[in-house]
Design a protein around this nucleic acid. Structure first.
Ligand code: ZN
Ligand code: ZN
Ligand code: ZN
Ligand code: ZN
Lengths: 125, 125
DNA sequence: CAAGTTTTGACAACCATTTTCGTTTTCGCC
DNA sequence: GGCGAAAACGAAAATGGTTGTCAAAACTTG
């Protein structure tokens, strides 16, 4: 893992929510780093390929990344306001999606499940 | 509903799967229509705003649309090969996501759930 | 038909992401 | 330490889906 990639990973870990490549680039430059935008993209590509970070798409199609605590398969409960995310897992959806796929004769069934809302903190305002 | 918008809606209904704006534009032009790409985008925007079509994002961030049979809240089982989609619904996920949100003090909880796989047809090949 | 309104589509602008390519760093080896 | 190959880097250009602009075309209403 190169120094640059570590820097990107660290910047991502510093946040509890999902961040875009541009966000992270801005963070790193604000911290005085001379990193290039291209390198941020490359680092995120490598990190998501190796499974070290999770990636999902916003409604606008922008890719956002998160350094999650667990290596296991899981989903997220994401705050629409501050973008903070909580990792969630449970056999219920896993079983349900598998059954749905099997019932319709589909093979190699996978799924994307994300839950959105306004977190307790942001709900006060 | 203008003639152009109807044409886009019809082109979308002719497919059982999700199509991108560019796909539909190509379909319509191939059928001899002189419609412009901008108009296709505008029609899809309007159709999804009014809830007449469902929209989701591919892994590559491209928006794809589908004219679904039901008006009710539902999800999709999508074939990764031919992109055919089956509409699915069930109280299991609905309840599960609501519970997860409530457990963490989130308000205004919504969710995105999509199931992917290879359909029976495409599994043969 | 005239005047006003809406819709349309060619083209340009946007913006996130990827490619290109010359430069810099890193690494293995002498 | 010195050296050459290989990998990493970053600025700038290219890409591609999507949106904005604006003048022309189509439709409405009187
Ligand atoms: Zn929040
Ligand atoms: Zn899962
Ligand atoms: Zn299929
Ligand atoms: Zn649902």
């Amino acid at each position: 893992m190169s120094t640059r990639r570590e820097a990107v990973h660290r910047a991502l870990t510093a946040s509890s929510g999902f961040r875009s490549a541009q966000d992270l680039y801005a963070d790193l430059r604000a911290d005085g780093s001379k990193i290039g935008l291209t390198t941020v993209y490359r680092a995120l590509q490598a990190l998501s390929d190796s499974g070290d970070v999770d990636v999902l798409r916003t409604d606008e199609g922008e890719a956002v990344y998160r350094a999650c605590d667990t290596e296991n398969h899981h989903h997220h409960l994401v705050c629409r306001v501050c973008s903070t995310a909580v990792e969630i897992e449970g056999p219920t959806v896993e079983r349900w999606t598998a059954e749905i796929g099997a019932q319709h004769g589909f093979t190699g069934v996978t799924h994307t499940v994300e839950v959105f809302g306004t977190c307790a903190e942001c709900s006060k305002a």
